[in-house]
Deep mutational scan, measured.
Amino acid sequence: TFYNFIMGFQNDNTPFGILAEHVSEDKAFPRLEERHQVIRAYVMSNYTDHQLIETTNRAISLYMANL
């Protein structure tokens, strides 16, 4: 899942690491979701930090390219 992918960046001092920290603390994050459209919609609806949203979009693109 995307959640498992992004958790691989925990403790990294990178934008993906920052995203992983936010996702791990977000109890409502769709952890079992595999459809990138649902993940993107969730982030757009629940996150207000523009940098975090952009990082999510980049992470989703990388995740999709590696499926």
Score class of each variant (00 low, 15 high):
S61I: 14
Y42D: 04
R31Q: 07
T55C: 06
G17Y: 04
M64R: 09
Y63W: 15
Y47P: 01
Q10S: 10
Y47I: 04
H50A: 14
H50Y: 12
M44C: 09
I6L: 14
F9T: 00
R58D: 08
R58A: 11
P30V: 07
S61A: 15
T55F: 08
E25W: 10
A59E: 03
L52K: 02
F16A: 01
L67W: 08
V23C: 04
N57Q: 11
S45I: 09
S45W: 06
R58Q: 12
D26K: 03
A28C: 13
K27S: 11
L32G: 12
Y3D: 00
D49S: 08
A28Q: 12
E33G: 03
I60H: 01
N4A: 13
F29D: 01
A65D: 10
S24F: 13
I53V: 09
A41Q: 12
Y3I: 02
A59C: 04
V23N: 02
I53R: 09
P30A: 03
E33P: 03
V23G: 03
M64H: 11
F29K: 00
L62M: 12
Y42G: 00
F5P: 00
L67H: 12
F2G: 00
T48L: 11
I39T: 01
G8K: 13
T14E: 03
V38A: 11
V43L: 07
T14C: 06
F16E: 02
R40V: 12
N57T: 09
Y42N: 01
G8A: 12
S45M: 13
F9G: 00
Y63P: 00
E54H: 09
N66P: 06
V43N: 00
L19V: 05
R31D: 03
N66C: 13
K27Q: 11
R31N: 04
T14L: 03
N11A: 07
A20Y: 06
N4I: 09
M44F: 08
V38T: 07
P30T: 03
R35S: 13
D49F: 08
D12A: 10
N13I: 07
R58F: 10
E33V: 05
Q37R: 08
G17N: 04
I18E: 09
